[in-house]
Computed example of a mutant assay.
Amino acid sequence: MSDHGSGLREWLAQKLRPRLAVPAPAAPPRRYGPPVLTADFTSAEQWVAGRSWAYPDGGPTNPGDNKLDHLVTDPQFSRGGTFRACRRADGDWDTGLLTTEGSADGFMVRAGDILDTRVRLPVETGAWPAVWTWFEGGNEVDVFEYHPDNPHLLELTNHVRGGHRGYTHASVAPGAWVDLKVEFGARSVVWWVNGVRAFADGRGVGRHWRAYLIVNLSVSAGMYHPAPAPDLTAMSFTVEHLHVHRGDDF
C-alpha cells in the first residue's frame, strides 16, 4: 500500500480516537474597582444596632429560629467589629447585631456586587456567627454561617433560589481567621474561602435582587446545634474588615 494510504489511515485513527475531557480551570475572582462600602462598625450612619426585620417584629428575640438571642443596642456588643454574646439571668443571651437596614446610609448590596470579609471564628459551642443579607421578608444569601460543634464546616447558602453547600476544610476551625469572598451573581452566586473557589451555585439571585447587610452573633438553642454549656457566660467572634465592590450583573 502506498505511503499516502498509510498516512490517511493514521490521520483517520487520530481523528476518531476517544479523547479524555480536560476540565476547565476554575475561573478566578472577577476584577473590581474600589469598594462602595468599607464597613465602619462604629458608624451610626452605616449601621443600626440591635434591631432587624429578619427577626419577628424587628426583635429582640427569635425563638422560632431556635435562637437564644436577645438583641441589644449597646455598642459594646459590636465594638471594633467584635460581636459579643453574654448570658442573661432569664436564660437568653444579650447578642450583638448590626444591619444597614434603617440606617442613615441605607446601603444595599445588589446583583453583581462582590463582598469580601475576614473573620475570626468563635471557639465556644453554641456560638452561631453569620454575615448575611435580608430585604422585605427574604432575599437572604448567607456569606457564611458557622457552628463550632462542626469545627471544619462553613455553611454557604443562597436562600433566594435554593443553592447550598457545606464547605469543609482544615483551614476552617474554631479560633481560625478565614477570608471570604462572595460574588452575588444574577445567574450564579460564587463563594471563595481562603482564596479557593468553594462553591458556585449555578442559580444566582436574579438581575433585580438587592438586600441589606446583617452581621451578628446568634446563640443556638439546642435543636439543630448544641446550646452553650451551663457554665459558659460569654462568647464572641470578630470581623476584621468587610468591603462591598460594585459590579455589573453577570
Rank of each mutant, 00 (worst) to 15 (best):
M1Y: 11
S2V: 04
G5F: 14
G5P: 02
S6W: 10
E10Q: 14
A13N: 13
K15L: 15
K15H: 13
K15A: 15
R19M: 10
L20S: 14
V22D: 11
A26F: 07
R30Q: 11
G33Y: 09
P34T: 10
P35C: 07
T38A: 14
A39T: 05
A39R: 02
D40L: 02
F41N: 01
W47M: 05
V48R: 12
G50Y: 06
R51Q: 13
S52F: 00
S52R: 02
P56H: 00
G58R: 05
G64I: 10
G64W: 09
K67A: 15
H70K: 06
T73H: 12
S78C: 13
R79Y: 11
G80C: 08
G80R: 03
G81I: 04
R84T: 14
R87S: 09
R87N: 04
A89Y: 04
G91Q: 05
G91K: 08
D94Q: 12
D94I: 04
L98D: 03
L98M: 10
L98C: 04
T100R: 05
G102C: 07
G102I: 07
G102V: 08
S103V: 09
S103L: 08
S103I: 09
A104Y: 03
A104M: 05
D105N: 11
G106P: 00
F107H: 04
M108P: 00
D113F: 06
D116R: 12
T117F: 06
L121Y: 02
P122L: 08
W128G: 05
A130M: 09
V131W: 07
W132I: 03
F135S: 14
G137T: 10
N139S: 14
V141N: 06
D142C: 06
V143K: 01
F144C: 03
E145F: 02
H147D: 11
H147L: 13
D149L: 01
N150S: 15
P151N: 00
P151I: 00
L153A: 15
L154K: 05
L154D: 07
L154C: 09
E155R: 15
N158D: 12
R161K: 12
R161D: 09
G162K: 11
G162N: 08
R165V: 10
G166T: 09
G166L: 12
Y167N: 05
S171K: 11
S171R: 13
S171W: 07
S171H: 10
G175A: 05
V178D: 08
D179S: 12
D179E: 15
K181H: 07
V182S: 01
V182N: 01
G185K: 10
V189K: 04
N194C: 04
G195K: 05
V196E: 15
R197M: 12
A198M: 07
D201C: 05
D201W: 04
G202R: 08
R203F: 09
R207T: 15
W209H: 03
A211N: 06
A211L: 08
A211D: 03
L213Q: 02
V215R: 00
V215W: 01
N216H: 07
L217P: 06
S218Q: 14
V219E: 04
G222K: 07
M223V: 15
M223L: 15
Y224W: 15
A227V: 09
P230F: 09
D231W: 13
T233D: 13
A234I: 09
A234H: 14
S236G: 04
F237M: 10
F237P: 00
V239A: 01
V239Q: 03
V239Y: 01
H243G: 03
H243C: 11
H243D: 10
H245K: 06
H245Q: 02
H245M: 06
